[in-house]
Design a protein around this nucleic acid. Structure first.
Length: 378
DNA sequence: CTTACATTTCCTGTTT
DNA sequence: GAAACAGGAAATGTAA
């Protein structure tokens, strides 16, 4: 389907309606919210038609030959598929022809489109591009190191808790020459499969991906743990000062959301656009990991299944997974554990004194018990 | 629009 | 000293 006219208008619209305040942002329709009605209203291609009447569409073309509209189609398709909130995409960011797009390194894509969408676009593009051109995003040492440098700079600028030890895999073979450290030995792409009766069923495959990025198991690099709000491109005013600079100035409690009008970048794509469906609570998420450990072995384990005592084995990995579920890439175990502690009062969890990373399900939790007929617990 | 809820974020202080 | 724990305070986003 040729979405480009719609997409262009959408992007233009989005670009022209930069958020003036957080409140504006709250009510700003998402990228796709713009897109779909617009496309419905405009004489876009009929449903199911991958191409316009005269244009075979980007899928039928060599990406090198993509027009700007093809590139916009390509991006919009991914935005659509990923249900990505691209309301902060600027048209300028997406305006390029296929040749330009193909010449972008993964690092540049991450920088332009954010870690989530950028990674997806890069990965997807590598399937379209003939091997002659695109297959070698890091063909030479210099290119490789340039990308490493870009990526490192980008990651550093985000001050992501683990980014200093990130390992980039797959299409970017950077790991071979840029040792970002050990990765979580998570099973595959952190894949918790939808569990049918569980509350994870609303997750798409992509929601559990780490976008080609694996997070290290040893959270040693938590030095920047206060700099987790990296929802924006690192503009001067958006980058938080060092922690120490805040001392004595920052009020207690969660700070107000920053304005999102930071130049059309959209690293706040993890912004929650929808609250988790009713029933999708943290304790249930934890329970489901425990109950279906075969889906994610090694993250958590039962200490005493009968009593409901469990332990985090990879606390930060679980937190990352929870963050993915909530579209919040800055989730940490520290924050997750705060939410866990709130469960004590509600008796969803019980305190287990003296044991680190160990919790116990309380009387107000359910679904974890070993039942005679094994209806829930497997 | 308001309110309740379930977090999320950040903090200080304590314990392991 | 670092990581985890504890819990206060305030903000957030969604549903009702």
């Amino acid at each position: 389907m040729s979405l480009s006219p719609c997409l262009s208008s959408v992007l233009t619209h989005a670009n022209l309606t930069m958020y003036q305040s957080p409140d504006d942002a709250l009510h700003e329709p998402s990228f796709m919210q713009y897109l779909e009605p617009d496309c419905a209203a405009h004489p876009c291609s009929p449903p199911g038609d991958e191409s316009g009447p005269a244009d075979p569409g980007y899928k039928q073309r060599n990406p090198q030959d993509w027009s700007e509209e093809h590139v916009l189609d390509f991006i919009s398709d991914h935005v659509d598929r990923l249900k990505f909130d691209a309301s902060h995409v600027s048209l300028a960011t997406c305006t390029m022809d296929g040749r330009h797009l193909c010449h972008m390194t993964e690092g540049q894509m991450l920088q332009n489109f954010g870690p989530y969408l950028g990674s997806e676009l890069h990965h997807s593009l590598s399937k379209y591009v003939p091997k002659t051109r695109y297959e070698q995003p890091y063909p030479s040492g210099s290119d490789l190191h340039e990308t490493c440098r870009l990526l490192e700079g980008f990651l550093d600028s985000l001050s992501y808790p683990f980014l200093s030890t990130l390992k980039v895999n797959d299409a970017c073979d950077v790991k071979k020459e840029c040792d970002y450290g050990a990765s979580y030995d998570l099973p595959g792409p952190l894949a918790i499969d939808p569990l049918g009766e569980t509350d994870l069923s609303d997750l798409s495959d992509s929601e559990y991906r780490v976008c080609g990025i694996q997070v290290p198991s040893s959270p040693e690099s938590r030095s920047s743990d206060s700099d987790l709000e990296f929802a924006y491109s690192p503009t001067e005013q958006d980058i938080k000062p060092e922690k120490d600079e805040f001392r004595g100035k920052r009020p207690r409690g969660r700070p107000p959301k920053l304005s999102r009008d930071s130049g059309g970048f959209f690293f706040d794509n993890q912004k929650k656009t929808k609250h988790a469906p009713r029933g999708t609570h943290l304790w249930e998420f934890i329970r489901d990991i425990l109950v279906h450990q075969e889906k994610n072995p090694g993250l958590m384990k039962w200490e005493d299944r009968r009593e409901g005592v469990f332990k985090f084995l990879k606390s930060e990995a679980v937190a990352q997974l929870w963050g993915q579920k909530k579209k919040n890439s800055s989730m940490t175990y520290e924050k997750l554990s705060r939410a866990m502690r709130y469960y004590y009062k509600r008796e969803i969890l019980e305190r287990v004194d003296g044991r680190r990373l160990v919790y116990k399900f309380g009387k107000n939790s359910n679904g974890w018990q070993v039942e005679p007929m094994g209806s829930v617990a497997s």
